[in-house]
Simulated assay, not measured.
Amino acid sequence: MAFVMVKCCFDSEIPLPDFVESVIQKCTDPGSFRPRYKRLVDNIFPVNPQDGLVKNNMEKLTFYSLSSPEKLDRIGEYLFQRASRDINRRRNGFVVIAMEAMDQLLVACHAQTLNLFVESFLKMIQKLLESSDPQLQILATQSFVRFANIEEDTPSYHRRYDFFVSKFSSMCHNDNSNIDLRDKIRMAGINGLQGVVRKTVSDDLVENIWEPVHMDKIVPSLLYNMQNSR
Rank of each mutant, 00 (worst) to 15 (best):
S120E: 10
T62M: 08
F163D: 04
P49L: 01
R39E: 13
L16M: 15
Q194Y: 12
D203E: 00
R182Y: 03
D203Q: 02
G31D: 14
D103P: 02
S202D: 14
P220V: 08
M171S: 11
S67F: 06
R160N: 04
D29N: 14
E100A: 14
F94V: 00
H110Q: 12
D51Y: 04
L193W: 03
V54H: 09
D29T: 08
I138H: 14
E152L: 15
S166R: 15
L106Q: 13
A140C: 01
N88R: 09
T113E: 11
T113G: 05
I44C: 06
F144M: 10
F3K: 14
E119I: 10
Q104T: 13
S170W: 10
Y37G: 00
R82D: 03
I179W: 05
L40I: 06
G93D: 03
C172P: 02
S84H: 08
D204C: 08
D42P: 13
S131H: 12
C109L: 12
D153M: 13
L72A: 11
S132Y: 07
N149Y: 06
P134C: 09
Y64T: 04
Q142N: 10
R90P: 08
L114A: 02
V165I: 12
I24T: 04
Y157A: 00
P49I: 01
D204Y: 09
D203Y: 02
T154V: 15
L53Q: 04
H158K: 13
E151F: 00
I97D: 10
Y64P: 02
V145D: 05
M1S: 15
E207V: 09
R186G: 12
N225G: 07
D29K: 11
L193I: 06
D180C: 04
E152P: 00
N88S: 11
A111T: 14
V4L: 08
N115F: 00
V41M: 00
S156D: 10
V206E: 07
Q112R: 12
R182M: 15
M124H: 05
S68M: 06
M102S: 10
S169V: 13
N208R: 10
K55R: 12
D204T: 08
L223H: 13
C27G: 05
M215W: 12
P35V: 10
R230V: 06
L114D: 06
W210N: 09
V41S: 00
Q126G: 02
V206H: 06
I87F: 08
R39W: 11
G189P: 01
Q112L: 14
P30K: 12
N43F: 04
I97Q: 09
A83W: 03
K217E: 06
P17R: 15
R36W: 03
P46R: 06
G93Y: 03
